[in-house]
Design a binder for these strands. Structure first.
Lengths: 192, 192, 192, 192
DNA sequence: CATGAATGAGTTTTCATTCAT
DNA sequence: TATGAATGAAAACTCATTCAT
């Protein structure tokens, strides 16, 4: 009767509800209900709501990074590599709007602040991303503006985030040509 | 002992607590306490927490727009007007971090989604801003890339939002020269 | 409609239910119900169930010690002072069976263990009681057996506790003559 | 790998956890875990947690009574028989602190109240113990005070219980000489 | 207008027990 | 017998809102 993997059902239900209503609009009982399990069952798979939230974030981030890295060729010129990454990222978000919304909820919360602080303390505020290296290299090759990494990151990433949000809200339809034009414009922002 | 205007006290307390702890970390009792009034008193000025939140948003947005429009000269060239607006905006956020954080909380919540939807339905997703007109004009004069307004908005605004967040989190120190370089780079992103 | 002091109602309800059913047989909802208040109201007076429990213990202990000290004359002989205290204690418990049962619940729980440890660490395992001094004095005067204070305490107190329990359970009817005979027997146990 | 008798494993695990954490600090899952069996397995041996608790009590009481009766010689004088029993009892508790703690948990709970009531209804509040007979005989021989059996029981038993508790809590170290002195003092309490 | 005690619905989490395998 | 995933009925606690003063 139940689908074979209850854990997936729970994760899926949590993703959908949290993405759409936020953490506080997602009582455990509602998640359980949508997943088709009893309230207590969630605690067979996740120790607490906190852990469910963090775990779900890790899964989404993993899938996203995997998508980014696919076909990424480190021997290509800086510009092409940037365009590849930006395009991939935007396309991933367009294809997985719930993932994007979930990540936004996560970042805009104590969880996200803690995560960012932790990562910044080490080396990068969005670790695992191929960006930091790419920017450093571009600055060294005098292809990219000589600005702090954080600023370059904002110039490159900020528009994608804002635009994805608008796309999801239905303010614009992001098709492939528009995505490419947008990423090209992002490049204009950081290129020397 | 009490300041004359309880309403201001309430608004100020709400801004501070919500900006720092989020909507759910800001019980009415805590706001009342910080404002130095009784819990019930808030309801003399605001029908509900929802209304307090929306009202506070409107006030902050108003102050911000006022700051943007100050010294704004519609007869100057597109580029200069953009640089003026961008610089003003970034400086305003740097000077009023609580306002920025509050707006982020607001946008990243059902309130924000509703607001944006409402505004888009009419004409603009960030109404009252001088941006839409500026972009239209820039496109017509072939100074700005021929992209949808929403995209231009993302290219111009996205980096500022992301960067302000990083500044507030302490990942970077935004001084005036850096602000100007950043806005100039934003211009590169949208200019033809 | 409501009795003037809701706090007393809550304390009274908690005493009765906890004494009879134990801490785990006393949900906050049940206490609230018996007190004639809403569940949340309890938290206007006590931060948590833990604090309610500890506070209630302190109140009971205070009343009991007051009863013990009444008419207590430090200039009388050791034996008379002991008989006075023992008789008072037993009579207090007979008159206030709920207090006795509550204290038993308390002592037989993590709360009690913590309390005893704390008191023992300082100077006495049942501080505030006039016993320790009395025992020391009696040993010095060679009226009381030369045994560790803890043992003397057990010899003197143990029977009263056990007997009070039996009285409350209805196994025996403790009237004044019997109380006096019992305390006299307790004295036989510790006297030299 | 598993010990042959799962039932013993379960009983042992329950004893240890309940003695140390109380009934409510001993979820069935934890008992099962410590016993090295699955949660459901416990229900193959015990119908419910209640029944496990009662059953365990009966086993402990049985072992304790057996220890008491060992070497007990009914033809010896009353005093010697009392000293024998008291010493045995105290030594048993010192040697088996978990048993003592478990019994305290049990008595101080609805289970214990029910048990005592049941036994009193028949004939004795601590049935199976050789005490009642001993007291009756002692009173008849005019060696023991002419007090109700319940009172004699409290005078004799109460100190041992209180003292064992203090010993387990580490407030005193009960070695053999001290045990004997204590039991002798108990005798002073009941002897004529 | 102002107060703040009181409310009670709603939230997360625990855990004895069941049952399909 | 043995398993352990699943259940769902509590339980403690929070907090927006009301209302008698």
């Amino acid at each position: 009767m139940a689908r074979p993997d209850k854990r997936s059902d729970i994760v899926g239900a949590a993703l959908q509800i949290i993405a759409e209503q936020g953490f506080h609009g997602a009582p455990m009982a509602m998640i359980a209900d949508k997943a088709g399990v009893a309230a207590g069952t969630i605690y067979c798979y996740f120790e607490s709501k906190d852990i469910l939230i963090k775990e779900l974030y890790r899964e989404i981030e993993g899938k996203m990074l995997e998508a980014l890295r696919e076909d990424y060729q480190t021997e290509r010129p800086i510009r092409e590599r940037f365009l590849h990454l930006g395009t991939r990222l935007l396309k991933y978000f367009v294809a997985h709007p719930l993932d994007f919304k979930y990540m936004e909820q996560f970042h805009n919360s104590p969880y996200g602040a803690a995560l960012r602080r932790g990562r910044f303390a080490k080396e990068s505020n969005v670790s695992h991303l191929p960006y930091p290296e790419l920017f450093e290299l571009g600055v060294a090759q005098q292809v990219i503006k000589d600005l702090p990494e954080v600023v370059l990151f904002a110039l490159a990433f900020g528009p994608m985030i804002t635009l994805t949000r608008d796309h999801i809200l239905g303010f614009i339809e992001l098709d492939d040509p528009l995505i490419e034009k947008t990423i090209a414009a992002c490049w204009d922002g950081i290129k020397r």
